[in-house]
Structures are given as structure tokens and as C-alpha cells.
Design a protein around this nucleic acid. Sequence first.
DNA 1: TTCTGCCCTAATGTATACATAGAGCGGGGA
DNA 2: TCCCCGCTCTATGTATACATTAGGGCAGAA
Lengths: 236, 236
Amino acid sequence: MRQSERAYATLLDEIQRGVLPPGAVLGEVEQAARLGVSRTPLREALGRLAAVGLAVQQSPRVTVVADIDADDIRQLFEVRAMLEAGAVRLAAVRGDTAVFTRLAEEFTAIGRRGPEAATDASDDYYDLIARLDAAIDAAVDNDHLAQALATVRTHLVRVRRLARDKPERLAASVGEHRLIAVALAARDGELATHATHVHLHNALHSALESALDSALDSAVPSAPASAPESPPRGNP
Amino acid sequence: MRQSERAYATLLDEIQRGVLPPGAVLGEVEQAARLGVSRTPLREALGRLAAVGLAVQQSPRVTVVADIDADDIRQLFEVRAMLEAGAVRLAAVRGDTAVFTRLAEEFTAIGRRGPEAATDASDDYYDLIARLDAAIDAAVDNDHLAQALATVRTHLVRVRRLARDKPERLAASVGEHRLIAVALAARDGELATHATHVHLHNALHSALESALDSALDSAVPSAPASAPESPPRGNP
DNA sequence: TTCTGCCCTAATGTATACATAGAGCGGGGA
DNA sequence: TCCCCGCTCTATGTATACATTAGGGCAGAA
């Protein structure tokens, strides 16, 4: 594998997992030394991160991990709603009914486990949801849309980490996805679109709630809003 | 200005203007020598072009200008419709009525010139349309949406070049944009959304018509569909 | 003591040298 | 004559050396 791709994958994973928190300085020499690559491939990795919006040039001299606040999350969900609503509308027309029928059955089955099983089987939940997304993408068959959605999803990974889904929210999410799958199986684009909007509305509110509880300090100026005393560093 | 940015701007312009046609090989040493920069900043420029989708790695060894066919244009307009329809719906709520009222008046004024003036004043037409787009972006105030739209618009520049708008189409487009501006001035998000869909429907059909006439050979296999004898080169 | 201006360091931006792998071509054999 | 093997050459991928500039720190003066 190319060193630049390896560096990109590593940095992406670390940013998404929070190892490199928002505001962490991404010095070229520092990260190159840490990842064991030269500056050239690392620069390419930073360029890709900047292109997708996860790294920003705070000044002409310093690149940092992009900040993320409640407003960012709202903006992200606005774009996501536009793209996913449009995607399911198209998928209802173009998709294979059998595929979505089967997915709907899987959602029904996994939903029967009840909310108390969600904690243990959360990986199964997320995997099934990812497969529904993949099926929608395949049905729509639009590269430009897929790329736009991929960018949004790249950011959403970090949002999910901030807002760990509670078990009851995860169970509700399964039900919402089940309805989307059912609508797609029935080729009901209108229902699928509305169900998607409902799902994203609930997901956004849950995310904002959890995120505000955990880390985000937006609109809660309990401490002076000046520069933090110890800005997070990726590699102290 | 940084050399890499200069190289990117130059290559982007040449791709959008058709100087580097679809399929043109983008050799690093060749382009670096031509643009008078080293391979390092040129690689960064190629990376940015690849990130936006205008350059693709045809093989691990050769990068070419991305191809574009009727299907691409349709896909592009699908994404564009999702994003712009959502944008105007939000802009109707968030925008400043005065701004869009003034823009609507400008569209009315420029529309009174009649279709025969479109050829001479096409720059004025496009400039006014661009200002409406900018006003919508500003009203929506969503960075992620702006970036997604910027990517789409980057591709659309090339589509417009393939499908040179006829004067009567340009005149009709002005009328369609006027309606969008009027709807936004009236804070009528529904009307703005529908007007946007109508406009994009017309724009897509006009583009496909013109493009099929001029250069695109999709679905018209008059010649054998094998590899062309003389693939276009950027710098023979 | 504080503010301002200069210098120095360290970071990025660029160029070039080196490594490596793939594609094309030529020669030899069947 | 055709096919296969190997070689070479050139392209990319990587590392490193050089240039440039921004930003901080120190010293001097008010």
C-alpha cells in the first residue's frame, strides 16, 4: 500500500476516533516522524483531509483538526437530509424490491430483540443500517451523489462518537430504518422520503442532546470563552 | 501565490475550458515542465483535481482528465437538484427579502432586453445568475452545503462549455431565475423549490440536447465503440 | 515596566535525487 | 511466423536537501 494512503487512513481513523481531537495541531514533521513516513506522502494525506474538511489551515503556518460544534452538526444534517431524501426517492424507483424486502425483514427481526439487547448487539445494528445505506447507494447508481454522501458520512462518524447513541435511541432508529426499507420495498418514494426526514430529525435531536451533555460547550458559556489554557495536542 | 495553487488554478481552467479535453493524459513531468513548476506542487494540484473528480487515475500509472458523458450530466443534475432545491427552501426562510427583491428586479430588467440581446450580453446574464447563487449561499449560511455545491458547480462549468446555451434558452433561463428570486423575496419556499426544479429540468434537457449535437457520442454508436485511434493529448 | 522593532528559529513550500514497479519492445525459441 | 521471456526505460512514489517566510523572543528605549 502506498505510504500516503496509509498515512491518510491512520490520520482519518485517529481524527474520527477522537485520538486527534478538534484543534489538535497537525505539524508535518511531527506527524511524519510519528507515522514513520516522509513529509511528502504525509503532505498528500493532509491535503486529502483538508479536501474533505476534517483538517483546516488555521493560519498559513499551522494546520489543525477541524473544530466541530452544534452548528456544524446542524449544517451537516441539513445537507444529509437533502442528499438522503433525494437518494431514497430515486432508490424507490430504481431499486430492486426483493433487496429492500429482505432488508426490511432483517430490521423487523433485529427490532424484536427489544431495546435491552441493543447495547450488546449495537454492532449488528450499525452493520445492518450500513447495509441499507449501501443498498440505497447501489440502487441510485449515481457516482456524484455517492461521493457527496461519502463526504458527509466521513464527518458523521465523528458526530456519532461525540453523541453515543443510547440504547432506546438505537432501538427507535432501527424502527425508523425498517420503515424506510419497507417503503423502498413497496416502491413508495414519498413515504421513504418522509420516513427519512423523520429519522434524520430524531437522529439530529438525539445527537445534539447527547453532544451537549458530553463535550460541546456551544451556547453554554460557563467558562470564559477566551483561548483555552491547554489546547489539545495530538502528540504531547 | 503558492506554486501549487497556481498550477491547480491553471489546470482547472484548462480542463473547464476544454484545452485539456476528457481523456487527456496528465503526466507529472510533462505538466510540471509545461507549467514551469516542480513535480511536488504539481502533484498537489493533481491531488486536488482528483479529490473534486475532474482527474481520475485510469491506471496506477496514468492520470487522465475525467471523462464526461450524458449519464454524468444526468447524475450531476440529480445531485444539483437535491442541493439547490434544499438551498432555496432554506434561503426563503433565512434570507433577506430586500436582497432578493432587488435581484428579482434586475432579472426583470435584463429580461426586458429580449432574446436577441442575449448573445451580446450573455456575460451580464451569467453574472447576474451567479450573484443570485451567491445570495442564496449567503442566506443559507451552511458551509457543508456550500462545499458540496461548489464541487457540483466545478463540474457544471465543463457541462456548460459542451452545451453552449442558445440565446432563446438563455432568455428562458433568465425568466426562470427571476421566478426563483421573486419566490425568495416573498419567502415562498415551496414556490422557490418548485421553480428550481423546473429550471433544472429545462436546463438539463437543453444541455443534453446541445451536448448530443456537439460532441457527445453516448447512445449513438455510429462508429465502432473500441478505443479511439488518436486519444487526445494535452500537450502533443 | 511596557512597548516596539529587529533577529533568529523553526515551520512550511519547493526542488531534486533516489527507489521501484510497470509497460513496451526486442530477441530467441518453438 | 508467432509466442514467450526478459530487459530496459520511463513513469510514479518516496525521501531529503534547500529556500522562504512567519512568528516568537529578546533587547533596548521611552
